[in-house]
Design a protein around this nucleic acid. Sequence first.
DNA 1: CCGAATTTGCAAATGACTTGCATTTAACAA
DNA 2: TTGTTAAATGCAAGTCATTTGCAAATTCGG
Lengths: 134, 134
Amino acid sequence: MTTRKTPNMTKIRQATLDVITVAGHPLSANEVLARILLPCNPATIYRSLHYLEGKGYAHSFVLHCAEHGTERYYMATTPENHHHHWFHCEQCHRFIDLGDCSLAPLIQEYQEKLGIQVTRDTLYLTGICATCQN
Amino acid sequence: MTTRKTPNMTKIRQATLDVITVAGHPLSANEVLARILLPCNPATIYRSLHYLEGKGYAHSFVLHCAEHGTERYYMATTPENHHHHWFHCEQCHRFIDLGDCSLAPLIQEYQEKLGIQVTRDTLYLTGICATCQN
DNA sequence: CCGAATTTGCAAATGACTTGCATTTAACAA
DNA sequence: TTGTTAAATGCAAGTCATTTGCAAATTCGG
């Protein structure tokens, strides 16, 4: 009995990664499903996104917006493995990149002060974007 | 026909507020339900928490933890209406207070730079607390 | 090409949360 | 106090994102 060494980057997984990479901003599973070109079952998209996150190809966070409810949003990991934070417009449902995470010093401080081990930070802002204010 | 001026702070709503106030840390609807002394329907807890948040008596955020899934957590608003941020231990499911939100300057900067109107910020850290590391 | 292990599709299940509706509660005027 | 009426609650069913069990399809390694 041979154990397969590395699970496969299948067509669907690659296509899923392509979709979130091209998008350039966080996408929900439903949005991925709507954009993927391959015929694909919703459950497979969920599994595919799990896979990508597990392998470090994607990051995700759970965001709630009044109009779309609570969903998990995925974005492709950058080459440097930095993660960004985002502003979400509740009106047009668009994301604005707030740039690289700048929480490292703050997190370091908390870790030292409280003896905690931080494995993940979630930060996002919501409100109305410049365009929707007019 | 007279329109009633102010909806009521009913017994259940008051008891709900009491529960999250006494807890001192974020509580999910289920946790409130488990702690409230009055006989009360789950749906009413949800409605009650909505009410409290709408009136400014409570704040909430959605957090995902591997063991408990995705849930909204509520905490009582402080007298100064400051909101805190929290660390959540994925092992013992306890919250540690990270203190007052220190994002104001950062948010102000984003608002000016991007012309956005930020109505809400969500920040929390997850990981393993000091106790659970041993 | 064969056999084992992984992946996918499909359908049902889960779980948080919401909603419609009938009933109960409570505010307000008389 | 009592009747009227809006608001609050209980109950049950519905919604929606996500997960899971299982059978069928795919694919890797030999």
